[in-house]
Simulated assay, not measured.
Amino acid sequence: MTLTAAAFTARIEALRPPPGRDRVRMGDVFGLAKEFGDLPLAELDILLDSGNHLVRVGALRIMGNQAGAKRTSESTRADLFALYLRRTDRIDTWDLVDLSAHQVVGAHLRDKPRDVLYDLARSPHWWERRIAMFATLALVRAGDADDTFALAEMLVDDPHEYVNTVVGGMLREAGKHDRARLLAFLDEHAATAPRVVVRFATEHLEAEERARYLAARRASGDS
């Protein structure tokens, strides 16, 4: 099989929705991403330029798979990280971000300085702010929630819904590892944070505790 961007694009464009559905199944896209798992970085760069959303979905799935594979060298992971950050202009929807920000960006930074996350968190582009937050999932899974809470402090009042949802979601994940820190964050911010942040962050709390934080948000007025 020829591992080129053109060949992958042709295979994506040949996909058809199953009977009774109006969308191509993501499982079929992910299956093709597995077939093209060794696609070179230069070809992945070409795919990220595509105007076809599913092609970019496939490209980012491949990047995430490559970054997470045990056989991938550290130099290749560094190259994937660099490509991802260079092409954030093409990773501009919530689903594209969530496909591999944690694998390509977050996992790469587990043993490295995380300054780039704070640069992304200050970006005028909401999807780069989402990347910063979602990337910390890899750090949380490794037992390190410091950057999740620090970035949540920066982004807790963000004006964009897709940043609000990821802040709340990552707080929830961090809270599984450090419940006391999550509760302290909520004690400080629940009354004023966007409601969706509080709703997502409290999903795994006991019903009575969750109701208390949501009531604090309602008491201050919804936004």
Score class of each variant (00 low, 15 high):
Pro19Arg: 05
Pro19Thr: 05
Pro19Leu: 08
Pro19Ile: 05
Arg21Ala: 13
Asp22Tyr: 05
Arg23Cys: 05
Arg23Thr: 14
Met26His: 09
Gly27Glu: 14
Gly27Ile: 12
Gly27Val: 14
Asp28Thr: 08
Phe30Arg: 08
Gly31Phe: 03
Gly31Arg: 15
Leu32Thr: 06
Leu32Gly: 07
Ala33Pro: 02
Lys34Arg: 15
Glu35Ile: 12
Phe36Tyr: 15
Phe36Leu: 09
Gly37Asn: 11
Gly37Thr: 09
Asp38Trp: 05
Asp38Tyr: 07
Asp38Val: 00
Leu39Gln: 06
Pro40Ala: 14
Leu41Gln: 10
Leu41Ser: 07
Ala42Pro: 00
Ala42His: 12
Glu43Asp: 09
Leu44Trp: 08
Ile46His: 01
Leu47Gly: 02
Leu47Pro: 01
Leu48Arg: 00
Leu48Gln: 02
Asp49Ser: 15
Ser50Pro: 02
Ser50Phe: 03
Ser50Met: 04
Gly51Ile: 04
Gly51Val: 07
Asn52Arg: 12
Leu54Val: 01
Val55Pro: 01
Arg56Asp: 01
Gly58Thr: 07
Ala59Asn: 02
Ala59Phe: 03
Arg61Val: 08
Arg61Tyr: 09
Arg61Gly: 01
Ile62Trp: 02
Ile62His: 00
Met63Gly: 10
Asn65Val: 00
Gln66Leu: 14
Gln66Asn: 04
Ala67Phe: 04
Ala67Glu: 03
Gly68Lys: 11
Gly68Asp: 13
Ala69Glu: 12
Lys70Gln: 12
Lys70Phe: 04
Thr72Gln: 07
Ser73Arg: 07
Ser75Val: 15
Ser75Met: 07
Asp79Gln: 14
Asp79Ala: 15
Phe81Gly: 01
Phe81Tyr: 15
Ala82Lys: 13
Tyr84Trp: 14
Leu85Thr: 06
Arg86His: 10
Arg87Ser: 07
Thr88Met: 14
Thr88Leu: 14
Asp89Gln: 10
Arg90Leu: 04
Arg90Tyr: 03
Thr93Lys: 13
Asp95Val: 08
Val97Ser: 05
Val97Thr: 10
Val97Met: 09
Leu99Cys: 03
Leu99His: 07
Leu99Asp: 03
Leu99Asn: 08
Leu99Ser: 04
Ser100Thr: 07
Ser100Leu: 02
Ser100Tyr: 00
Ala101Cys: 11
Ala101Pro: 09
His102Pro: 02
Gln103Trp: 13
Val105Phe: 10
Gly106Phe: 07
Ala107Ile: 06
Ala107Glu: 11
Ala107Pro: 00
His108Cys: 03
Leu109His: 10
Leu109Asp: 09
Asp111Asn: 13
Asp111Pro: 00
Asp111Thr: 12
Lys112Thr: 01
Pro113Ser: 04
Pro113Glu: 06
Arg114Ala: 10
Asp115Ser: 11
Asp115Asn: 12
Tyr118Cys: 02
Asp119Leu: 09
Arg122Phe: 00
Ser123Cys: 04
His125Thr: 06
Trp126His: 08
